[in-house]
Nucleic acid binder design. Structure first.
Lengths: 249, 249
DNA sequence: TCCACCTCCCTACTTTTAGTAACCTACCGC
DNA sequence: GCGGTAGGTTACTAAAAGTAGGGAGGTGGA
């Protein structure tokens, strides 16, 4: 709304990794500029790292912009000028972590060649990522606070596009069961992507209370749960459209 | 925290239904007491109905206790005395709607007898409920704002217990595939409940953007997706435990 | 009859926090 | 020297959560 937010949208070289080390690195970078004045992008990196840490520590409502300013060692208007409003900062954190996750999953998927292996490798990458960023994942990606449906939804849509691509990729260059091509309709494909993503996310949530399970087991187990149904769908192609000519009674 | 909240925990006769009609009914009931003084439980019902409406309208952070007091026609300390803090009010709304949902799903499940029919009937009841309470479901049950993991988690655990019971019920009195009993381990059963619930919830979220699909189609389609995997799990019993003697590399 | 007490209810605060207005200062190119 | 700009601050406003402390009116008992 405020017209003067120079914002944080066009920076973020996607190079930063999350975690306390990111904060320290950014802090060191800031410290090299001795007498107060620090270049904009350096401050922004530092503040985003601090913000992620803060949100993960305290949650969205629990975190305050004053606290962020204090930790960054600047005054509040600086915060607003550099990274915008609280929601925008939260959005930026979500987006950064979401991109990191999408990258990890994509790497996992592309490391395999068959349909099932891709699903399992992608799932494994997903679970490993969650394990490595449990707290951040919970706060930023799993716990979709309402005002941020935009951003969280965005990221999830991205995740689901990946899943959809994974499932849809089958028809072009390979097949599900020997020779059955997967030409599910686009509507069903979209629904499938959401459903499968939801299953993964939920299982990751459950995993939080059962840390003794290893991610490989999770990925394999979930693949075992989903694969037969996907195969069956590829075979039978059930539709989500209303039966033709069968209006409501 | 405040010791003097008389709260809302032990009332709620579970008779109230949600929606604007509930608000109007409660308001009429309040209006019968002419000169200000209104019995406690009547006010509480009214305020909870108004609160749900307000949260659904504006979301958690967007809703204010001042506004709630204004709408209820009382002063703010009354609100705090009657229904506690903002989070407690939100919790109460979540709990009420969650109980209504659990009841609806349980009714659906118990209307069927075979394993697959139960799953489909329960799913249908779930989707119908979501359709009938879309906005409230989104705000109160789907969009788990972080501070309320307790309540939302509670309700979801309840939902998942239902799903788990549905799956676990199979071994005692019926079988999945002719004669194969379903004695999946308790850990796997719990994971299964979470995963399946997550799939349902995600699909319901997707449905919000595709209202043309009918709930019967959704339930049938999702059952078609999940059933083969569940059958396979009952047959092969894949485990989530680490392979014995296979420590991390 | 009078008194203690309980229920319902209000005005008027305190504190915290998001967000902003207006100003300052040093350096950099010219 | 000098204007413009990047980096920065103090000091505010507005809104909202939650509380302190009190008051009116009815009810039961002595």
């Amino acid at each position: 709304m405020s017209a003067r937010v120079r914002g944080v949208t066009s920076d973020a070289p996607a190079s930063a990794r999350s975690g306390p080390s990111a904060v320290n690195q950014a802090a060191r970078e800031v410290a090299t500029f001795a007498h107060g004045k620090v270049p904009r992008d350096v401050r922004v990196r530092h503040m985003l790292a601090l913000a992620e840490e803060l949100f993960v520590e305290r949650g969205f409502t629990g975190a305050s912009m004053d606290e962020l300013a204090r930790r960054a060692g600047v005054s509040k208007p600086m915060v607003y000028d550099l990274v915008g409003t609280k929601e925008q900062v939260f959005d930026a954190c979500i987006r950064r972590l979401g991109e990191e996750l999408a990258l990890a999953v994509a790497a996992g998927v592309s490391s395999a060649s068959t349909w099932q292996d891709q699903m399992q490798a992608g799932g494994l990458a997903f679970f490993r990522f969650v394990a490595d960023h449990r707290a951040a994942w919970t706060v930023l990606l799993a716990g979709s606070a309402q005002p941020f449906d935009g951003e969280v939804g965005e990221m999830r849509r991205q995740q689901r596009r990946l899943v959809a691509a994974l499932i849809a990729g089958a028809p072009v260059d390979r097949s599900i069961e020997g020779d059955t091509p997967v030409n599910i309709g686009p509507v069903e494909l979209d629904a499938l992507a959401h459903t499968v993503s939801g299953a993964f996310e939920s299982l990751a949530g459950w995993w939080g209370e059962h840390p003794e399970v290893r991610p490989e087991q999770l990925a394999e187990w979930l693949a075992a749960l989903l694969t037969p149904g996907l195969r069956a769908m590829a075979r039978d192609r059930p539709t989500l459209a209303s039966p033709e000519g069968a209006g409501p009674p």
